[in-house]
Design a protein around this nucleic acid. Structure first.
Lengths: 346, 346
DNA sequence: CCCACCGTCTAGAACGTTCTAGATGCTCCG
DNA sequence: CGGAGCATCTAGAACGTTCTAGACGGTGGG
């Protein structure tokens, strides 16, 4: 005679089913499932066996509903930005050992930041980690008033209460790039910027300051760009049309830089012989031999770790000092930069 | 005198708070918030205003706990695969208009497929959409017995009950690639495969069949590869060491193909003059001018739409016929293929 | 004038879990 | 022998929502 399944029809097994099968109370099963104190080894084993047998799986939502803490970190990211997806990997790696779960909410063409964040809040995330948020600062302040918020890669001055900032020293990164180009002998260095994108203002400023410091104030030139390949390509087309072209370009990020490279290549302008190009982010893309892009690397694991750390510290009620966490970037020299006039590549 | 906030301290507002403020019952507020039938226009407006004023936000988890349906689709994807992230965008676009929410669970170095799926099930997803799952078929069958499962890009023969398959005609794609190369005059065409990756077996078979059909059985050669750049690079290094090299390479996917291109480029082997290369997926990467990769495009929006459609159909209890949904791919000819011996590029 | 019916609203029980408060029985100590 | 103290276990109330059943007043047909 086959044992009657303890679980009715299509319903999924609950604590009560396990309890019935193991012959104990629901509360005790809860204790065992959580690994909490208060059950003998013998019953513990018996309960676990019963749970295993009927395929019990705890219901996160019911669990969170009851307990005051949800231990859930909400992460908003852009699916198309390798920089973001790499950060997400780091966030998983940092959050799970600390006993926090991660809820992802992507920004996509059909799904704005507002929608992405609303979903996270409705899911009861205790804190928000926003990767490169582009909403107005006022909106971030509003969110910060509700839950701890960590803004990654987006500077806020001053940071509203409840909002932490973790970012690379974007100005410093731009400075390193300019120093490198100047050391190679470049003077006409143009910056294709990121417009209103997070970090863009700092990179612009870093570029300007470095240029001025080297007495190149006359050569300062910022071209409107953006964070996609298309934005880079558009700016590059402007440069192509010019009589004496600049000898070097500092792009807002790697995607933008590949758009620039792409356009130059199609137009027969050789890089770095005729013009040098520098990116920002050091994505996997930049490392490929065809692209082999000189770029400014951000310390992604460290940024992820810090972002999670700040969020958790706030949740644990630690009295985190207000202020930004700024992480130094590092220039990675590859094949798209060379002295002007073309000593050339390889 | 400032109005006393209807909501105590740090707690977030609930239906009860809204009800108290609007002077109606909790049940009525629930009706209004859901937009359900059973409230007059006057009270409806009054309740909505009260909710707005105290910043009420429904609690998804409590909502799901109570109602039998969760209207939640769980999606497992790989953060590093542009093919997956593009699909996720399509899935959002298809699911939300149909009234379903999407829960994302990423596979990362620190987080295997088992863990990713467990998280989705614990969150009460009604159906699972798995992008390129690599777990054993038995495991998928086991999952299919619990909830509707859609396996995207991974073939299963036979598909276990409860498991739908949506995929490109991988064999057909490989065939198109071979046809193209043969038409250009190639004979020694080698395939760098995807090992045990989803779709790899079909692409291998399509390659073999097409080669045989053209009387090139003697030239059939499958080199072990994989789905990352590194896998492609490794295989390319093997080829570089050989005396007469093949004249064309069909790589498992675009990432693998870029690894191949990369290695050839660094070794001074010109593409397509000395050797032609074809990828698979038509990622944004392939379209960049430096790479300009001939590749097999998959119809991503259609795949996403179909995957969501099948999941929802199963949930709605429609009697979906078992069987795969196979979508034809399309070869995109770009700059990495040319006749052998080098009439060359540009 | 009665009753059925409709639109509007409400009380209270679910959902699956955790938490609080306490019950039970055992051991150990004076 | 009488508690105190401990380990183990349990009943029942929460959590914030939806659902079921029904209450209430007004209207209209016979």
């Amino acid at each position: 005679m086959p044992a009657t399944p303890a679980v009715p029809d299509g319903k999924r097994p609950t604590l009560a089913h396990v309890a019935a099968r193991a012959g104990v109370s629901v509360a005790l099963v809860s204790i065992v499932m959580r690994g909490a104190y208060g059950a003998s080894d013998a019953t513990r084993e018996r309960v676990l066996r019963a749970a295993e047998e009927i395929g019990y799986r705890p219901d996160t939502r019911a669990r969170l509903l009851r307990s005051s803490r949800s231990r859930l970190l909400g992460v908003q990211f852009g699916l198309r930005h390798p920089f973001h997806t790499d950060l997400v990997e780091g966030i998983y790696a940092a959050a799970e050992p600390a006993g926090y779960q991660v809820a992802l909410s992507a920004v996509a063409p059909s799904r704005g930041e507002r929608q992405a964040v609303e979903a996270l809040l409705a899911d009861r995330c205790e804190a928000l980690i926003l990767l490169g948020p582009e909403v107005p600062a006022a909106r971030l302040a509003e969110l910060g008033a509700q839950v701890p918020v960590v803004s990654v890669a987006r500077r806020l001055r001053p940071a509203p209460p409840g909002v932490d900032v973790v970012r690379s020293a974007d100005d410093e990164g731009a400075r390193q790039a300019v120093e490198h180009l100047v050391a190679l002998g470049h003077r006409a260095i143009v910056h294709i910027d990121g417009g209103r994108a997070p970090g863009a203002a700092d990179r612009r400023r870093g570029y300007r300051t470095a240029m001025n410091r080297h007495g190149l104030a006359d050569h300062v030139r910022v071209l409107p760009g953006g964070l996609t390949e298309e934005d880079g390509a558009r700016a590059a087309r402007t440069l192509l049309a010019e009589a004496p072209r600049p000898s070097a370009v500092l792009a807002f990020n790697d995607r933008c830089a590949t758009g620039v490279l792409d356009t130059f290549l199609r137009a027969g302008v050789t890089v770095p012989d005729e013009i040098s190009v520098v990116g920002f982010d050091d994505t996997r893309l930049a490392r490929l031999a065809h692209i082999d892009l000189t770029t400014v690397a951000q310390d992604i694991p460290r940024i992820a770790q810090l972002a999670v750390g700040r969020a958790i510290a706030r949740l644990d009620g630690e009295d985190v000092p207000d202020g930004e966490n700024v992480i130094p970037p590092r220039l990675v020299v590859r094949g798209t930069t060379a002295p002007p006039g073309g000593a050339g590549r390889g």
